[in-house]
Amino acid sequence: MKEPILVVEDDVMIRNLITIYLNKNGYDVLEAEDGERAKELFLKHHPCLIVLDLMLPKISGEVFCKWVRKDMNNNDVSIIMLSAKSQIGDKINGLQIGADNYITKPFNPDELVAHVEAMLRRTGMMCQKITYDGLCIMPRKREVLLYDKSIHLTKHEFELLYLLMSHPNTVFTRERLVNELYAYDEQDILDRTIDAHIKKLREKIEAVPSKPRRIRTIRGMGYKFVN
């Protein structure tokens, strides 16, 4: 199931267009026509990504964005701003107050969907709680529970576990894991780095790390999470 997306746009035709294209690509969409309604939906549903118009009634897009980032102290949700304001200063301001991306109107809806998917690949795909046999990962909280006991993971360990649990019984080569998880890291990531993270994960989530039941090694290929 793909992540819920909040679309905040007062122009009903534009809002409907965005919703249609996102629905067509398998996303659940929450719709808000103004900033106040956007706050209500955000608090109730905790969307992973927000498509946000700037010129909104009641509460502006700028104010709403600042509220999400500062008052709610939320940096997990991705924000794509949509605006008719096309000056470079407007774009810089939007990014400085908390947007992850800035798209000017008029826009191509297929391009917007591509931006959404790219954003979720990099920072999202982290809304759904996943539970298998006592192991529970809650991406938005960055928390992992093993039989209701909290397990501390490093950033890389967490992202690796989430990727594997999100694709149960799928074999990931070391090269694919490097490309999926560390493409934006400055340091060189080697196969042995992946092996080290797997080893640490097993020590934390496996009853017998030397005989792993959850994260299996597929000889000559890579690793998979067995549900």
Score class of each variant (00 low, 15 high):
residue 4 P to Q: 08
residue 5 I to H: 10
residue 9 E to W: 05
residue 10 D to V: 03
residue 11 D to P: 01
residue 15 R to N: 12
residue 15 R to Y: 06
residue 16 N to G: 10
residue 17 L to C: 05
residue 19 T to W: 02
residue 19 T to Y: 08
residue 21 Y to N: 13
residue 22 L to D: 09
residue 31 E to K: 11
residue 33 E to V: 04
residue 34 D to E: 13
residue 35 G to S: 04
residue 36 E to M: 13
residue 39 K to E: 10
residue 41 L to N: 07
residue 41 L to C: 08
residue 44 K to N: 13
residue 46 H to N: 15
residue 46 H to S: 15
residue 49 L to R: 09
residue 50 I to F: 03
residue 50 I to Y: 02
residue 51 V to N: 11
residue 54 L to P: 00
residue 56 L to A: 08
residue 56 L to F: 04
residue 57 P to F: 05
residue 59 I to D: 13
residue 60 S to H: 06
residue 60 S to P: 03
residue 65 C to T: 01
residue 68 V to S: 06
residue 72 M to L: 14
residue 74 N to A: 00
residue 76 D to V: 05
residue 78 S to Y: 08
residue 78 S to F: 05
residue 80 I to A: 11
residue 80 I to N: 11
residue 83 S to D: 06
residue 83 S to R: 03
residue 86 S to D: 15
residue 86 S to M: 06
residue 86 S to E: 12
residue 88 I to S: 14
residue 90 D to A: 13
residue 94 G to P: 04
residue 95 L to E: 07
residue 96 Q to F: 06
residue 97 I to S: 11
residue 97 I to W: 09
residue 97 I to V: 10
residue 100 D to W: 00
residue 102 Y to S: 08
residue 104 T to Y: 09
residue 105 K to A: 06
residue 106 P to H: 14
residue 107 F to M: 09
residue 109 P to S: 13
residue 112 L to S: 07
residue 114 A to Q: 10
residue 115 H to L: 06
residue 116 V to N: 05
residue 118 A to F: 02
residue 118 A to S: 12
residue 119 M to C: 14
residue 121 R to C: 01
residue 122 R to S: 14
residue 123 T to L: 13
residue 123 T to E: 14
residue 125 M to T: 09
residue 125 M to H: 14
residue 126 M to S: 15
residue 126 M to D: 15
residue 127 C to Y: 11
residue 128 Q to D: 14
residue 129 K to R: 13
residue 130 I to S: 11
residue 140 R to P: 03
residue 141 K to V: 02
residue 143 E to G: 05
residue 157 E to G: 04
residue 159 E to A: 14
residue 160 L to V: 00
residue 160 L to W: 03
residue 162 Y to S: 13
residue 162 Y to K: 15
residue 165 M to H: 07
residue 165 M to V: 00
residue 166 S to E: 04
residue 168 P to M: 11
residue 176 R to Q: 12
residue 178 V to K: 15
residue 179 N to V: 05
residue 180 E to I: 00
residue 180 E to T: 00
residue 180 E to V: 00
residue 182 Y to G: 06
residue 183 A to C: 07
residue 187 Q to S: 12
residue 189 I to V: 15
residue 190 L to E: 07
residue 191 D to I: 02
residue 193 T to H: 14
residue 195 D to Q: 12
residue 196 A to D: 10
residue 201 L to I: 01
residue 201 L to A: 08
residue 203 E to A: 08
residue 203 E to K: 13
residue 204 K to C: 04
residue 207 A to P: 01
residue 207 A to T: 09
residue 209 P to L: 03
residue 209 P to G: 05
residue 210 S to N: 05
residue 211 K to P: 01
residue 211 K to T: 02
residue 212 P to Q: 10
residue 215 I to V: 05
residue 215 I to E: 03
residue 216 R to Q: 11
residue 220 G to M: 00
residue 222 G to P: 01
residue 223 Y to S: 00
residue 223 Y to R: 04
residue 223 Y to P: 01
residue 227 N to M: 13
